[in-house]
Design a protein around this nucleic acid. Structure first.
Lengths: 234, 234
DNA sequence: CACTTGAATAAGTCATACCTTTGGAGTCAT
DNA sequence: ATGACTCCAAAGGTATGACTTATTCAAGTG
């Protein structure tokens, strides 16, 4: 994703460097310097900088150069910024922010999904819950992850709110990060799997309140399990 | 904001046109054509297109051109995309999506703010509640709006979650839109003002549950008041 | 009919020249 | 010394022409 062309390469190099704090706030990047450093033309540098500017990672002014902006200015909802931060030194902060967002959004999404659930959604969700149960028991973390992501994405989509649906990628990134960085036990907690089943059942029963409760338990549990790791990195 | 330079002008013209559906999904824009239409150079066109591409509004491929992407692909959390959609034909859909997001986030933000409220936050919030009460009575909608935006932004910031804080702009845009388009009564509802006072008091008392309840009442109320207008436009 | 080949097309890249803004040095008068 | 004014140089912004590369589509070939 987003690795097309030279400007893509620049972006894939500069973005993470800035997002991780490797290039600190206030640093001034001159076009000429970037051209030389990456051996590319003005055109390429300018396009990459434009994109970074749209993300509010940098701001360019005449006679000054492109300045790395303070964290507060960054567009923290941009998918690329989220990914870059998750990959770098800011991982802890990004995970806790996303955790908070999940606590806010996912329970409401589950309630909405239950309130207007179609048979298809019910079927798919139930099937995913079964897969989660099976792969959790067998300890196949990769498959478990795949289905976990699909489960949460489906709930977000079934909410009928396009903005909720777009958070699926971010949630997926969080779940992936959790698995990749060994931040979770080798056998997913039994209670978590049970809660996923509860969500699926509540959605099928169009019981909004129950769906919301179960989902809230899932996401608060996820954040709590992460808390020690976050504290350790801070 | 974002009106600097020629590429900024292009963006300010193309962005809204796409976001409003005026330029429909699937439309192919050729660089040369855009150069001619706006009387600018390739450089400018390419930079504008790059930014639109980062927002996933368009995708450019060799030998084909830059194609307008379907709505589902758009980065609906991008501040500019939100603003453009609010200004155009998609306003109703965007308002209802944002309304849903507010219902999810703001109550949780209020609870967090209450749980870790500082004296400063309490003071500021109380002051804003007073201003809201006064300007509501006098019917000064512009001032009321200003303070309303500040109130919600402060709660989001006081939550301590950077992602919540970044939603302040979007919430501000919703509130502004509501006032500008005469979608609200000339004297803000008395119960709404009372609820804002309740939020402020709950935060000062560090009563998370009460703050969450009051805020939830505010945002659900806001969405319900909007419902008839939304239905009418759909 | 499938498969290869080739030409046309539009984006991507580079190099260069020139314009425009603006920070800051230098100057001068108070 | 302090303030205001002038002017220059630095860096981004824009325009343009030449060239590269990927990709589609169609013609040709087995």
């Amino acid at each position: 994703m987003e690795i097309q062309g030279l400007h893509g390469r620049l972006l894939a190099d500069l973005g993470p460097a800035i997002a991780s704090g490797e290039i600190p706030e206030g640093t001034v990047l001159r076009s000429e310097e970037l051209e030389a450093r990456y051996g590319v033309s003005r055109t390429v540098v300018r396009e990459a900088v434009r994109v970074l500017e749209a993300m509010r990672l940098v701001a360019s002014r005449r006679r000054v150069g492109t300045t790395v902006q303070p964290r507060e200015a960054w567009d923290v909802f941009d998918p690329l910024v989220i990914r870059w931060r998750l990959a770098g030194a800011d991982r802890a902060a990004q995970l806790s922010s996303l955790g908070g967002l999940r606590i806010a959004v996912e329970p409401v999404a589950a309630a909405l999904a239950a309130a207007q659930a179609s048979e298809d959604h019910c079927r798919e969700l139930s099937a995913l819950a079964v897969e989660l149960t099976v792969t959790a028991r067998s300890g196949d973390l990769q498959e478990f992850l795949r289905h976990d992501i699909a489960f949460h994405a489906l709930v977000l989509r079934a909410s009928g709110n396009e903005m909720f649906a777009h958070l699926a990628d971010a949630v997926g990134a969080v779940l992936t990060g959790r698995t990749e960085h060994e931040l979770m036990p080798h056998h997913p907690a039994r209670y978590a799997v049970a809660l996923h089943r509860e969500v699926a059942e509540a959605v099928c029963a169009q019981d909004a309140a129950a769906a919301e409760r179960a989902m809230r338990a899932i996401v608060t549990g996820a954040l709590e399990e992460l808390a020690p790791t976050l504290a350790e990195q801070a």
